[in-house]
Amino acid sequence: MNFITKSFSELNTTELYKILQLRSEIFVVEQNCVYQDLDFKDQKSLHIFGLKNDKIVAYTRIFKPGGYFKNSSIGRVVVATEERKYGFGHDLIKASIEAIKTHFKVTKITISAQVYLQKFYESHGFIKVGEDYLEDGIPHIRMNKN
Rank of each mutant, 00 (worst) to 15 (best):
K6S: 14
T5E: 12
Y68M: 14
Y121C: 01
S24N: 12
Q31N: 05
T107W: 00
I141N: 01
K85V: 15
K18E: 15
G50S: 14
I138T: 08
Y35H: 07
P139F: 05
D136Q: 13
D91C: 08
L51N: 13
K44L: 10
L46G: 09
V129K: 06
T14N: 10
H103C: 05
I138M: 09
L22P: 10
M1A: 09
V115K: 11
R61H: 01
K64E: 15
Q21T: 07
K119V: 05
S112E: 07
V28S: 03
D54I: 00
K55E: 15
L38R: 00
E131V: 02
Y121N: 07
Y86C: 12
N53F: 12
I4E: 12
N53D: 15
V79W: 14
V129P: 00
L22C: 10
L20H: 03
L92D: 04
I111F: 06
N53C: 04
T102N: 11
Q31D: 02
M1N: 07
S7L: 07
E10T: 09
L11Y: 08
N32Y: 02
L38E: 03
L51G: 00
Y86G: 07
Y121V: 09
E10C: 05
D39F: 09
D37W: 00
S112L: 00
D37E: 15
V129A: 01
K6L: 04
G130M: 04
D39Q: 04
G87Y: 11
I4D: 07
F63S: 06
K108Y: 12
F126E: 02
G125P: 15
K128S: 03
E135P: 00
V115D: 02
K18D: 14
K52E: 10
D42H: 08
N12A: 06
I127C: 02
R142E: 06
D54M: 00
T102H: 08
K6W: 09
Y133V: 01
K55Y: 05
F27M: 03
G87S: 07
I97N: 09
T107F: 05
V106P: 13
G67Y: 03
E83K: 12
T5Q: 04
G89R: 03
L92K: 10
N71W: 01
Q36V: 06
S96V: 08
F8M: 14
V34P: 00
R23W: 02
N32S: 03
H47S: 12
L46Y: 12
I56A: 08
G87F: 04
N32V: 06
A99D: 10
G130V: 05
K128C: 01
F3V: 12
E83L: 04
A95L: 13
N144I: 10
N146F: 14
F126D: 01
L11A: 11
D54H: 03
F120C: 07
D42I: 13
I97A: 12
N71S: 10
N144D: 10
E131Q: 11
F8K: 10
F120T: 03
I48C: 10
Y68I: 06
K41C: 11
H103F: 13
K145R: 13
K55P: 01
E10A: 14
H124F: 15
